[in-house]
Design a protein around this nucleic acid. Structure first.
Length: 437
RNA sequence: UCCGGCGUAGCUCAGCGGUAGAGCGUCCGGCUGUUAACCGGAGGGUCGUAGGUUCGAAUCCUACCGCCGGAGCCA
């Protein structure tokens, strides 16, 4: 008999099929039993009538508990009373294992309990849908970049030194007790491979030991960091809005069922298309001053100060598409960012802020390519040639203008899924005080 | 590190000075179309920990621990 998956059931109407999976829920009313069956691709109802199956099969059904693993064989039939529209009229039931009392019940649970049982929580319909959308986003990013000539070049996780400064790093030990750090960005290394291959990207985990306890922060999270030789700031922004649009559209096309499962209102997602609105940092500061009203829980900032979380929220509320904020003051951004030739006080860099309060999902910039300017920045930031000499070499040997950006995968998933916390965007989130399971 | 909130049954919570409660889950029984099925019954608790106030503390006070949200920092 043919082993099929729940997502393909409509193609097998009227046929006898085999399904392999788990019991998500079980109901009985004496002479009839309903198994809510899941197999990872979807959920369907399986029905056991006492008259249609041998007595031992009907008795076996009564033993089923939530999350017991089973193989069922039966006829696919259309029935409006069944969730999803199709059900299985069970003829045979193989019990693979009767599950112990399952901790996650049908009623609601608190986040602490669910996080302690994350290894089981991922089985729930909502979490399955989110992880499928995450997969779609990841694959869409790869496909977009590959189709545009970008080559995947992995950056190291184990680093001898910090990348950008500022962020708190995870320390570990290299051989011979030498100090090492977990990567907080693959950017510096991807700049090197960009000079080898032209257009490259790295896609991997990054680590920040910040004591940040908010819905937007993970200690370990995934970033995609494209880097392209001869790309200007303008090329960079175009690439970003095209990539984000591609990803959103593909999720809307291919994961509509999952978006529906998690109850995502896709109205604003459908509006995502280039060009994205752009404002300069200076305009943003002015905008915040105008928008501020007495009694607001935030205060406007002065030119030269960085935005806080409330400022990002207020700014994104002014637009229904992702918005670029560009040309930040030099002193609040990373050392490697190229100054604007029209105003050396600001950099040719931009953050992309997602709508609906999701905040920064991309940070990017054109990089400094002039050796003398980079050397000056090293001095200003106290970076020594011994550790950063290799990075300086990129400016000595055929330096070219180049640009790149980093997109936070979890924040992107949270935005597209409409989640209120990034902890649901990754199978096993690592947070402050959360290292298990 | 700082600010705010919360720790009571396996889970989600109510009770807020006078003998510890509900729903769900579990177990037993009933039911031929259920939709987080329903109906009847049973079992289940040193009320986060330590100290204090009181005739009497889950309830009031103090400290500590844990969790959640936020700020700063950061993507």
């Amino acid at each position: 008999m043919k082993w099929v998956t729940v997502d393909r059931l409509p193609q097998h109407e009227g046929e006898m099929v085999e399904l392999r999976g788990w019991v998500q829920n079980y109901r009985s009313s004496g002479k009839i039993q309903f198994i809510i069956f899941r197999d990872g691709t979807g959920v369907c109802q399986a029905v056991l009538f006492v008259k249609d199956v041998p007595p031992e099969v009907f008795e076996a059904g009564k033993r089923l508990t939530q999350e017991s693993s089973i193989i069922i064989r039966g006829t696919v039939r259309k029935d409006d009373r069944a969730p999803g529209g199709y059900e299985i009229g069970v003829k045979e039931l193989d019990i693979v294992q009767i599950a112990d009392e399952y901790p996650i019940t049908k009623k609601e649970h608190g986040t602490e309990f669910l996080m302690d049982h994350r290894h089981l929580w991922v089985r729930s319909s909502r979490q399955v849908a989110i992880l499928r959308i995450r997969n779609e986003i990841t694959m869409a990013i790869h496909q977009f970049l590959q189709e545009n000539g970008f080559i995947l070049t992995e950056s190291p996780i184990l680093m001898g030194t910090a990348a950008e400064g500022g962020a708190t790093l995870f320390e570990t030990t290299y051989v011979n007790d030498e100090q090492a750090f977990l990567s907080q960005s693959g950017q510096l290394h991807v700049e090197a491979t960009a000079m080898a291959l032209g257009r490259v990207y790295t896609f991997g985990p990054t680590f920040r030991a910040e004591k940040s306890k908010t819905r937007r922060h993970l200690i370990e999270f995934w970033m995609v960091e494209p880097e392209a030789a001869y790309f200007t700031h303008e090329d960079n922004l175009k690439l970003q809005e095209e990539m984000v649009t591609y990803v959103v559209r593909r999720v809307l096309e291919r994961r509509a069922a999952e978006l529906k499962t998690i109850g995502r209102d896709t109205t604003l997602l459908e509006k995502v298309e280039p060009p994205f609105p752009r404002i300069t940092y200076t305009e943003a500061v002015e905008m915040l001053k105008k928008l501020h009203k007495p009694g607001d829980e935030w205060e406007p900032i002065e030119w030269g100060e960085d935005f806080g979380a409330p400022h990002e929220t207020v700014l994104t509320q002014q637009f229904d598409k992702p918005v670029f904020v560009e040309k930040f003051p030099v002193k609040i951004k990373a050392f490697y960012m190229q100054p604007d030739p029209e105003n050396p006080e600001v950099v040719l860099g931009a953050d992309l802020l997602a709508p609906e309060g999701y905040g920064e999902i991309i940070g990017g910039s054109e990089r400094i390519h002039d050796p003398e300017l980079l050397k000056r920045r090293f001095e200003e930031h106290g970076l020594d040639m011994e550790t950063y000499g290799w990075y300086y070499d990129l400016r000595r040997f055929g330096s070219v203008p180049h640009s790149g950006f980093g997109l936070g995968v979890e924040r992107t998933v949270a935005w597209i899924c409409g989640l209120d916390h990034v902890r649901e965007t990754i199978p096993f989130p690592r947070l402050l005080n959360r290292l298990h399971p």
